[in-house]
Design a binder for these strands. Structure first.
Length: 868
RNA sequence: GCCGGGAUGGCGAAAUUGGCAGACGCAGCGGACUUAAAAUCCGCAGGUCCGAAAGGACUGUGGGGGUUCGAUUCCCCCUCCCGGCACCA
């Protein structure tokens, strides 16, 4: 904190006026408490055995990129305020932090700076941990998790063995996404609009590779259904996950290939959600990459060339991200398939709008009832046969020909053999049953969600604990031999293939089955494996025998409140839901979902754009802390906007917050009341406030105004923590309270505010500030003579009676227009209000010479007089 | 194209159940303190128009319509911005 000292020194020579001791020196106060908190490692530790109710509040762990950014500060300020609030409400709070510390940037930095990834990463962690501590975040550091260390990643390996045992990890050669910049494979979830999620301008290529996959699709249905029960999750995230999983109910139907040549007796299986329209199918369309296309083309060189063109075109469009906009076209193969429902021969085409990676890569084309098929059929003059018509309300009525294509479920079949006359929904059911009976198809469900490819051809990740033996094939590393340690001295500058493949000591191993030579798997795991279960490790972070103890996890899980950025809506948040279900089925845990409630905070932007180095609009937390203090940085990040919305950072805004903190401090310095009664006993303040406000010794108006405002403020802040989380309005409520205190300073000086009462007010004010500005709150807590631990001091309670206004102002409208206001007592009757209103000059003017039609009085809110 | 979210002063925003639009803060202006400035404290402040002023009139929550005594809030249509999905058969 050399910067901080610099600013401090600069200021010291300014401190020569009379009000020196009233000036709030954030650096002095914050460094004092920073040092004190440093001495007490167990300050924020969760209690392992407790009769209190538990509360697990978690913020997404950061990637240790080097330094915290404002997005982190915002994220952690929200979580920290909540954690502190829950502590003050008597909960046993678990509030841990860790490091998602495997991943590509470490390798890139290593190449650039010639530093080993491990050192670079650990150095960053040390720096960011120091930043977090300086910001005053209350983490239980005894549970810190660092995913790149063997005591963590060994459990990734252990889980991998379990996945393998369960048949949930398997090896498959397939077409995969390849980012040339990352020089590695990406999961589907990591491809954004055809580009790499980390390199937004780098087009992802397709490569044929043998890879490890995790069978996420096993839980596709549960992942989808479970979303309905996650009521504490934002609808947005649930929708995104639903879209991603992309469940679609339909029917598989086999079309027999017609003709002697080609694979004899082979069939083309098509997937359709509208089997009811199958009598209108006038062609079969294949994806250019469909395996049967090669066989169909056979020696037809012309066809092969055309198909190759379609393939190239599709790939290009996919990479450019505009598949969906390319013009539909295709080529007839000259071959035919037989519609199993009516025995009709239909031509087989290959078309650029059919995707190999959805459904079966083949469709039946029904031009009359599908927009795409219609467009295609029009272009190539294929037959368009109407088989569904609108439901006629009157059977005698002649049904008008619907406009084509007629795409609706709400219809009746015609020209469909035995199914004519059925509704679409009935027909789908009956026809699927028929197909299954006759064994040429069945009702089925397809998903957009694919299995998770987790192999990465990179160094800085968890080694996949597998061996390849010439004799025994794929052999898992025995559990007792874990962890497979990631070697330190690896030349990662070499390109081509996995870096670990160039380390003979690593690659060469012994087969545990036959004792012969074996080759180690050299790919590492996707880092999303690390973050899929880290929050369980927090509950039992030093367990040497298992990832965690199930009993301990059961106490803490599910996470009560998870807080992070929405950018993880389908990556991390779907993988970790999968992992929870997998662990549950292993018998390790009993919860179905990892987190009960999820909160996604908005981005921190500046000048209307996301902060980025290239735009030069980055605000450094270190600089803010040095200039205004941690409290100001935190408070501002909560005050500037509601937490779920984007926050537009304004440098002058944080200055205002800094001023506010100084204002609180100055008031307290000038008016501190150390009420002897309260120092001796830490009796709850409510009782004495009540007493002070009781009829026996009525408070004078100034004191009563303070009391009223205080209780209104406690209510607003408490309600918001329970409900909407609009900390911006909580903080403005506290500001209003402070404004009232300032307005009462004269009355205080004149002794019109009883000391014990004021002392209680000050105490509650400090309590209200504690979740948001812990440094200042602790300083003031000490200043007012409190000896107890503020972190766990009971949260103040509000009294509805004391919060109530005695006098209220009722706006008076005439025909909905504001014409005047009357001040009445809070319990005034409608008659009184009306009487006063009619006495008001302006109101009288507005209703003069007119007839009063109606009077609407909303108790305590408004009076509207309707005239004609 | 589909699904979300959003649009309110010069700026960030508030209005929790249909009831005073603009709380709180920033920037601005004025005053007090000061030799002066900073800091601090107090006050003013949506817009337009009338008025010397006090004050008053009209208007105003992206645009248009509707329901209502009353709409930032509910309904219908439209524009723009942000995010997600997208030839998904």
């Amino acid at each position: 904190m050399t910067q901080a000292e610099g600013v401090d020194a600069e200021r010291s020579d300014v401190r020569n006026d009379v009000r020196n001791d009233e000036r709030y020196d954030a650096q002095r106060v914050e460094s004092k408490w920073f040092e004190r908190w440093k001495q007490n490692a167990a300050l924020y530790a969760a209690e392992p055995h407790s009769t209190k109710k538990k509360y697990y509040v978690l913020e997404m762990l950061p990637y240790p990129s080097g330094a915290l950014h404002m997005g982190h500060v915002r994220n952690y300020s929200i979580g920290d305020a909540l954690a502190r609030y829950m502590w003050m409400n008597g909960y046993n709070v678990l509030h841990p932090m860790g490091w998602d510390s495997f991943g590509l940037p470490a390798e890139n930095a290593a190449i650039q700076n010639n530093t080993p990834p491990r050192l670079w990463t650990l150095g960053n962690i040390a720096n960011m941990k120091a930043q977090m501590k300086r910001l005053g975040f209350a983490y239980d550091w005894s549970r810190e998790v660092t995913t790149c260390l063997p005591d963590y990643y060994r459990w990734n390996q252990w889980f991998f063995l379990k996945l393998f045992e369960q048949g949930l990890a398997y090896r498959k050669k397939s077409r995969v996404n390849w980012c040339p910049k990352c020089a590695t494979v990406l999961a589907n979830e990591q491809v954004v609009g055809g580009c790499c999620w980390r390199h937004e301008d780098t087009v992802v290529e397709q490569r044929e590779l043998e890879q490890w996959f995790v069978r996420t699709t096993k839980y596709a249905d549960e992942l989808l259904c479970g979303l309905d029960k996650l009521e504490g999750w934002p609808e947005k995230v649930r929708t995104m996950q639903r879209n991603w999983i992309g469940r679609s109910e339909g029917t598989l139907v086999d079309f027999k290939l017609e003709g002697a040549s080609g694979p004899a007796g082979s069939t083309i299986s098509v997937f359709t959600t509208r089997v009811d329209t199958i009598y209108g199918a006038t062609s079969v369309q294949l994806a250019p990459e469909h395996p049967i296309v090669k066989d169909l083309a056979g020696a037809n060189a012309d066809l092969r060339t055309k198909v190759d063109q379609l393939i190239a075109e599709q790939r290009k469009a996919k990479e450019a991200g505009d598949i969906g906009e390319i013009e539909k076209h295709g080529v007839a193969t000259g071959r035919y398939a037989v519609n199993p429902f009516n025995g009709e021969k239909v031509p087989i085409w290959v078309a650029n709008y059919i995707l190999m990676d959805y459904g079966t890569g083949a469709i039946m084309s029904v031009p009359a009832h599908d927009e795409r098929d219609y467009e295609f059929a029009k272009k190539y003059g294929l037959e368009i046969r109407l088989v569904v018509v609108p439901l006629a309300s009157d059977p005698e009525e002649t049904v008008a020909e619907p406009a084509l294509p007629f795409v609706t479920h709400d219809g009746m079949l015609i020209n469909s053999g035995p199914y004519s006359g059925m509704t679409c929904d009935d027909a789908i059911k009956k026809m699927s049953e028929h197909a299954e009976q006759k064994k040429f198809g069945k009702a089925t469900v397809t998903y957009r969600l694919k299995d998770w490819g987790i192999s990465r051809q990179r160094y800085w990740g968890t080694p996949i604990p597998m061996l390849y033996c010439e004799k025994d094939g794929i052999v898992p590393v025995p559990e007792k031999d874990l962890p497979v340690i990631l070697p330190d001295k690896v030349d990662i500058t070499l390109t081509g293939g996995s870096p670990l493949g160039k380390v003979p000591e690593f690659v060469n191993a012994t087969c545990p089955k036959c004792g012969g030579p074996a080759r180690r798997e050299t790919d590492t795991m996707d880092t999303f494996v690390d973050s899929s279960w880290y929050f369980y490790r927090y509950t039992d972070a030093h367990n040497d025998h298992a990832p965690f103890d199930g009993k301990v996890a059961q106490y803490w899980f599910p996470i009560d409140q998870y807080i992070g950025g929405v950018e993880h809506a389908i990556l991390h948040l779907i993988y970790s839901r999968f992992w929870t279900k997998f662990m549950r089925d292993l018998g390790m845990i009993t919860n179905d979902e990892p987190a009960d409630r999820l909160f996604t905070q908005g981005m921190v932007i500046k000048d209307g754009a996301k902060m980025s180095k290239s735009l030069g609009n980055v605000v450094s937390p270190d600089e803010m802390v040095a200039r205004y203090g941690a409290d100001a940085a935190r408070l501002y990040s909560l005050f500037a906007a509601p937490p779920d919305r984007d926050l537009d950072w304004q440098d002058t805004g944080i200055e205002g917050i800094h001023r506010f903190l100084g204002r609180v401090y100055r008031f307290m310095v000038r008016n501190t009341c150390v009420a002897t009664s309260l120092v001796a006993s830490s009796a709850p303040s409510l009782a004495s406030v009540r007493e002070a406000g009781s009829a026996a010794t009525p408070l004078q108006p100034a004191a009563r105004a303070i009391q009223r405002k205080l209780h209104q403020t406690i209510k607003r802040v408490s309600d918001d923590f329970q409900g909407r989380w609009h900390f911006n309005t909580c903080i403005s409520a506290i500001m209003e309270l402070v404004n009232v205190l300032y307005a009462s300073e004269e009355a205080i000086a004149q002794g019109a505010v009883p000391k014990p009462f004021l002392s209680d007010v000050e105490r509650d004010l400090v309590l209200l500030l504690a979740p948001f500005a812990p440094y200042l709150a602790h300083e003031l807590w000490e200043m007012i003579g409190e000896k107890s631990n503020l972190l766990k001091a009971p949260w103040p309670k509000y009294d509805a009676v004391l919060a109530k206004e005695e006098e209220i102002e009722i706006p008076v409208q005439v025909n909905g227009k504001l014409r005047g206001r009357v001040v009445v007592s809070a319990d005034a009757t409608e008659e009184t209000v009306l009487e006063r209103a009619l006495a008001d000059e302006k109101v009288r003017a507005a209703i003069a010479c007119k007839q009063v039609v109606k009077k609407i009085y909303v108790t305590g809110k408004l009076l509207n007089i309707v005239v004609k």
